[in-house]
């Protein structure tokens, strides 16, 4: 019995190691799909629709990555991960890439052995309270009961914020967004804190969103972006440049609607031609087909389109572009040149 258990455990460890070592692109091509780690369910960012199909902001970036590799935005499988399980899932090779509202920090980049390949959403930690409490500022939250998701930078920021302001609080650690929502709505917490985008997304799903307010303080920088395992530069480059391509596409006015026409007819702008594989051999450098960016853009449009469709002001979540506007329009979204 003991021996049998040990062998099974050993086999499990072996299976894990095989996935972690080989070149990820080759593995992905061999299995025919990208395995993408996403949130367990966060309105606007990653959720399953009525037909059980994954959709959302993060999900669309995953799909664009799959489209760049296979020319097919559906050559992808999703693994829902919690704040706690996401890093283990990536480190063990269970997922190839993680698009899960994950904050880029030094220790995660260096010590956990991951590579962050860009930022697809610049966020910051905020607070949501009931309007009936009459709280106008986070500085008034002394003694409050605060719901937080465990295993996130959120709880570290929160500890820092309350310590820096000499206030006490009662943390209620929660595993997933859905549970936190239930706790907050039943008034078991005064405050729910997470990234401001997540708060807006969560509030949009409430029965009466108008009764809840986001406090003005943003207490942290939360650059959320995709990450991959450290040590596979080719895979990291692909993930980084899919994101960059979508940002450049917005900058250059390449949209889901006109990308096919531009790719066929060419454009007066040489950078657009390079982006769409008409000039140069940039796809080859990445180990992808020449028209990879065309497929990536066709999957869900450019960055701006993805933003507007999933979380933008026309949606229930209603996030303004803010920092996530292009650098040329007052935001800090800036992709290196495509050449």
């Amino acid at each position: 019995m003991k021996v049998k258990g040990a062998i099974i455990a050993a086999a499990a460890v072996m299976a894990v190691s095989a996935a972690a070592n080989a070149a990820t692109l080759d593995d992905v091509k061999a299995k025919g799909f990208v395995q993408c780690g996403v949130s367990t369910g966060l309105a606007g960012f990653a959720f399953t629709d009525a037909n059980g199909v994954w959709d959302g902001f993060d999900v669309t970036f995953c799909r664009a990555t799959a489209a760049a590799i296979f020319g097919d935005a559906n050559a992808i499988k999703f693994t829902p991960t919690t704040g706690k399980t996401r890093f283990t899932a990536l480190a063990s090779g269970e997922v190839d890439i993680l698009y899960r509202n994950t904050t880029w920090t030094l220790s995660r980049d260096v010590d956990l052995g991951f590579t962050f390949t860009g930022v697809n959403y610049y966020d910051g930690q905020g607070f949501m309270v009931r309007k009936s409490l009459g709280v106008k500022s986070a500085k008034e939250l002394d003694g409050a009961t605060v719901c937080i998701q465990t295993g996130t930078t959120t709880e570290l920021n929160l500890a820092d914020f309350f310590r820096a302001n000499g206030m006490s609080y009662e943390p209620v650690p929660i595993e997933t967004n859905a549970e936190a929502q239930q706790k907050y709505l039943s008034n078991a917490c005064d405050v729910y804190t997470t990234d401001a985008s997540g708060l807006a997304a969560t509030r949009a799903t409430f029965e009466k969103p108008g009764e809840h307010a986001l406090l003005p303080e943003i207490i942290s920088k939360e650059p959320l972006g995709p990450l991959v395992r450290q040590g596979d530069d080719q895979w990291a480059d692909i993930s980084a440049w899919v994101l960059n391509a979508l940002i450049i596409a917005e900058e250059k006015g390449v949209t889901k609607a006109n990308v096919a026409k531009l790719a066929a007819d060419g454009s007066a702008d040489p950078e657009v031609n390079r982006l769409l594989g008409k000039e140069g051999s940039y796809g080859e450098m990445l180990g992808l087909p020449a028209d990879w960016a065309v497929h990536a853009i066709s999957a869900g449009g450019n960055y701006g389109e993805i933003f507007e469709r999933n979380v933008g002001e026309s949606t229930a979540i209603g996030l303004a572009r803010g920092l996530n506007q292009l650098w040329s329009k007052g935001g800090i979204l800036y992709a290196p040149p495509f050449r």
Binding site: G83, F87, G113, G151, P173
Partner: peptide
């Protein structure tokens, strides 16, 4: 929750 949860997660 502490040793096998948050500590594990924050330190890797």
């Amino acid at each position: 929750g502490t040793l096998g949860g948050i500590s594990l997660n924050q330190t890797g």
